[in-house]
């Protein structure tokens, strides 16, 4: 079960959502999910699973074939403009005019939401400063680096202060330092009450940021639960052990499977029910002088692959 957060009306409720294209391809086969207000939610799935189609329907870039979508209780069929006001969207592809200035891109978006010019300028300054783009405000979009373009799209999505922010692979192609900075920004935003839905290929990102998760495969939800619950169900974890001395030639570690990574490093598998204390005891008996121990990234990735394999 997904971890619940406060609030009665879901930030997003999807019921039996279907999408079939003209060529007969069924991208969504009746998915249902609910995202609580204030949640940090991950939507995962391999390429072509239906993530972007789902997001496209929520923000009106894709027409649904059947089903219902409600944003903060507003049914998109009943009043899509009202529902759209709740949503901020950061798409996967850059979708702004590269010849417009950064400041204009953000303030124009505010105008499309009906924000007066003065308020639009104030908000644009706030978010461009927070995202480190204020110095670039008079530069055209095409002059920005890839990471800056992504941050510009986040600033643009936030300018009308949406209650629900949807990010479609926001850190794709962004370097590690900038990705960490973006994570911090998103965590702060979430802590201030914005519900965030994130699709990502970096499962480490979902594990680090999100509380709940839905995994889509072949247009169906194959898992919808909390990240904690998902990880709890992992049957085994792999730990990397660094030894102070070269590993003994003849090495036997009681009760554990292991693999030599190099002459001073071991990868050791710990089954559900086994304890780390047992690992240290066994390593001590085997004559391995442990310097450090860490779990191999990425636990979620293993679970993800397992789930997809099961679904296939």
């Amino acid at each position: 079960m997904p971890e619940s957060t406060a609030g009665s009306t879901p930030a997003l409720r999807i019921e039996n959502l279907e999408k079939s294209y003209d060529n007969g391809f069924q991208a969504l086969k009746g998915i249902s999910l609910e995202v609580a207000p204030g949640d940090f939610f991950a939507l995962l799935g391999p390429n072509g699973a239906g993530k972007s189609t789902t997001i496209g329907i929520i923000c009106s870039l894709v027409s649904k074939s059947a089903g219902k979508v409600a944003v903060h209780g507003v049914d998109i069929d009943a009043d899509f403009p009202a529902a759209k006001k709740f949503i901020g969207i950061v798409p996967q592809e850059f979708n702004f005019n590269m010849f417009e200035k950064v400041f204009d891109i953000v303030t124009n978006q505010a105008g499309f939401y009906g924000l007066p010019r003065a308020l639009a300028s104030e908000r644009a300054e706030k978010y461009l400063r927070e995202l480190g783009l204020w110095e670039k405000r008079d530069v055209t979009g095409r002059m920005l680096s890839g990471g800056m373009k992504r941050r510009l799209m986040i600033a643009r999505a936030l300018v009308h202060d949406p209650k629900l922010l949807i990010l479609d692979e926001p850190t794709a192609g962004v370097d590690i330092e900038m990705r960490r900075g973006m994570w911090e920004f998103l965590q702060k935003l979430n802590a201030n009450g914005t519900t965030i839905i994130l699709t990502t290929h970096y499962l480490e990102e979902a594990e680090a940021l999100c509380r709940n998760i839905a995994i889509i495969n072949h247009g169906s939800i194959v898992e919808n639960t909390s990240i904690k619950d998902l990880l709890r169900r992992l049957q085994r974890e792999v730990f990397i052990v660094d030894s102070a001395d070269p590993l003994p030639e003849q090495l036997t570690i009681e009760s554990f499977e292991f693999r030599r990574a190099d002459e001073r490093t071991l990868e050791i598998e710990v089954e559900k029910g086994q304890h780390l204390n047992d690992v240290f005891t066994a390593l001590d008996r085997a004559g391995v002088n442990v310097v450090s121990l860490r779990n191999r990234a990425n636990r979620l990735e293993e679970m993800f692959v397992n789930l997809l394999e099961t679904d296939a």
């Binding site: 009106s60 870039l61 759209k84 006001k85 005019n97 499309f112 643009r156």
Partner: peptide
């Protein structure tokens, strides 16, 4: 350049 989406996603 897909910037029409700025308008399509807005109310």
């Amino acid at each position: 350049n897909h910037s029409v989406e700025e308008l399509l996603v807005s109310p």
